[in-house]
Design a protein around this nucleic acid. Sequence first.
DNA 1: GTACTCGCTATCCAAAAGATACCTTAGGAA
DNA 2: TTCCTAAGGTATCTTTTGGATAGCGAGTAC
Lengths: 133, 133
Amino acid sequence: MSVKVRWEGDAFDPECPTRVVLDRVGDKWTVLIVDILDSGPKRFNEIRLAIGGITPKVLTSTLRSLVADGLVVREVFAEVPPRVEYSLTGLGRSLQDPVAALREWAEANVAEIVENRDRHDEPQVSEGMRAFR
Amino acid sequence: MSVKVRWEGDAFDPECPTRVVLDRVGDKWTVLIVDILDSGPKRFNEIRLAIGGITPKVLTSTLRSLVADGLVVREVFAEVPPRVEYSLTGLGRSLQDPVAALREWAEANVAEIVENRDRHDEPQVSEGMRAFR
DNA sequence: GTACTCGCTATCCAAAAGATACCTTAGGAA
DNA sequence: TTCCTAAGGTATCTTTTGGATAGCGAGTAC
C-alpha cells in the first residue's frame, strides 16, 4: 500500500511516478496555469494578469517546465510586437481529472483543516497542562 | 471551471481549499509520511528511517504542520527514554483517496512525461531551425 | 562518572522563489 | 531622426525555504 511497495524503488527516484506528478501538481502555479489554459490558448501576459501575483521570471520558468513535460505547447508568431501563445496538450488537459478529485476532497474537508489550524495557533495550554510540555 | 470561478475569490487566499490541499500534498514529505502512518502508529525515528533521506529538522516541522492541520495525532508517553507516537486521524486517512487518484494518473502518464522531458533536454535544433531561435 | 537512548533543537549553508529594473525589435508619431 | 510603445521576456538583487551537521536533556545502566 505504500509508495515504496508500489513503486518497488526509491520514492525519491526522479522517475517515481507519484513523485514526478506531485512535484508538478504541488507547484504553486502549475494548477492555476493549467486551469487558465483550459479555456483556450493564452498569451504570456494574459496568463500573468489572469493569475496576478506571479512575477515574469517565475511564470517563464513554470511555463518552460510545463512545455518540457509536454503538458503545454508554446507557439511563437513572427509579428511585431511578438506574440507567443501557450495552450494545453491532451496530456495537460487530462491532468484536470485527478486534480478535480483533489479539489473535491479539498472543498469537502478544508473547513475542518482550517479550523484545526486556527485552534492550534492559540496558546491553548492550561496551567494544569503546562508541566507536560 | 477555473479555480478562481469556483472559489469566487483569490486563489492565493490562505483559505482557498484547493490551494490549502495542494500546499500540503505537494510538500515533498507529506504523502510519504501519511503513507507510512497508514499501516499504524509510528515513532519519530521509525518514520525517519522508513523514509530515509529526511533530516530530523524537516521531519519535525512536517509532522508539526500535519498535527496542526489535524491529519496526524502526536502522543507522548512519559517513559525513559521518551516515546512519541504519531498516527493518522480519520481526516488523514481520508486523504489517501484523492492521492490514490493522482497516483493512478501518475502511473498511467509518467512514462510520457519523462520521455518528453528527456527529448526536451537534447540539443535537437537543426541547422535549418537555428535561425528561428 | 561515563555511556547510552530517544526525540528532538541550534547553527550554518545552499538552493529556490520572489521583487524590481531593464532589454530587444520594429512600426508609428513628433 | 529621435522618441515612444508593445510583448515577452532577462538580469540582478533579496528573501525565504530546505537541508546538513552537531549537540542537548533526562533518566537509567554499567
